[in-house]
Amino acid sequence: MIEIRGLHKWFGALHVLKDIDLSVATGERIVVCGPSGSGKSTLIRCINRLEQHQRGTITVDGTELSGDVKDIEKIRSEVGMVFQHFNLFPHLTVLQNCTLAPVWVRKMTAGNAEATARHYLERVRIPEQADKYPGQLSGGQQQRVAIARALCMEPKAMLFDEPTSALDPEMIAEVLDVMIELAESGMTMIVVTHEMGFARRVADRVVFMDNGEIIEQAPPDEFFANPRHERTREFLSQILSH
């Protein structure tokens, strides 16, 4: 579904992604973890071209990601993204946030778009907030709206960039629940997160990145029980002890 081969990226002179090889099959759930500055966010932002890579190839559902505008648009409509700081549009209602892209990109009629939006708002369990503005919702509710907004485009894969890092502890659970339900329904997901409980429960594979490289990847049981690389062990010991 998503194939990354030999990916290199520089920010100016800084080499931030070094020779990344990653394959994600349809329906697979990948969790990417690592210390800050390891390039995890940059990696998934390259997948939907929010960042440009300088070397290597990224292929999404058969289409190679290049400078071609048409390819980029096609890929963006098939890959949804959820951000750490939600990035909801504050001047639009929750419903309008969700119907915006289907109407303007998929050219749906307003009626169809609204039906789809209500369906997904139901799925993330906040259908009653449809006419509120983002500023009137709690952080957990806003993030769930952000997930619904991405889902309204009926993407084939979803990217999550630290979706719970900006939330108060008591709201993390509600967002994780939605993500778990999404995973169990078969969505292909790449999730950058520190929530190891989520990784253990749902991930098919955990990928550890440090300093721009993929150090280790393994199914969660193996990853947490027998980390092979020293840096992985170091990281796990910091993250798993309170």
Partner: peptide, 24 residues
């Protein structure tokens, strides 16, 4: 040179200079 295919063991990839047409 970043072009030369190299297999570095995980954790030992050096930081390479960026491709020439994107700097300087």
């Amino acid at each position: 040179s970043p072009d030369a295919p190299h297999d570095y063991p995980p954790g030992q990839h050096p930081s390479l200079p960026p491709p020439p047409t994107s700097t300087g």
